[in-house]
Amino acid sequence: MSAKAEALGGAGESKLSPQFHVAHHFDKADTQFDAGRMGVWLFLVTEILLFGGLFCAFAIFRSKYFPSFVEAHHHLDRVMGGINTIVLITSSFTMALAVRSAQKNETKKTTLLLAITLACAAGFLVVKYFEYSHKIHDGLLPGGNFTAADFASGHPGIFFAIYFMMTGIHGVHVVIGMGLILWILLRNQKNEFSSRYYAPVENVGLYWHLVDLVWIFLFPLLYLVG
């Protein structure tokens, strides 16, 4: 795979980003780039374990209140969930392409791709808004706030507690991700990135892919199998 990789080092020479310099405590740009990425990977570890707590709670209560979970998950809209899955995967795709065009010094294309990613993220939140308002309207709420009648099984409130906590924290990550994408979009418009320096684009990309990764597990667990 790597043999096919295109080398662009030479092409970028004329487009060095003027703002970029290697921080004084790094010996060279490459070390700085690697350090940044290692830091982001370690940060992603903390994200995985943060969501991991909720996955743990899901596993335990699913086993404990299995009938409730099966019954409750039918109240989630799998069409909306499916649309959101596709929206997030698309945004991941455009984000990956944005990193690629930043690597290739295609500043305008980077801006466009980042804007599409941002639009997808916003679309995701709009769908989420409709889902949430529907749940709130039906009284399908966490624990003590659960008011929906006609449930045959014992503890559907626990399912919705986990549903709201998981998707809520995920949604907060989407909002933070939008802020970060906007930030690199603006920096990109100021021509701060080049094939020589695009670390922020790549690192925000890594974060955004993780948000996608979490949803890849949330969707089937909550919407499909319950």
């Binding site: 096919k4 990789a5 295109e6 080398a7 490459d30 070390t31 780039f33 690597q103 020589r196 695009y198």
Partner: peptide, 9 residues
Amino acid sequence: GDHVPHVLP
């Protein structure tokens, strides 16, 4: 020691 990207097709 400058950074050179690794671009996929």
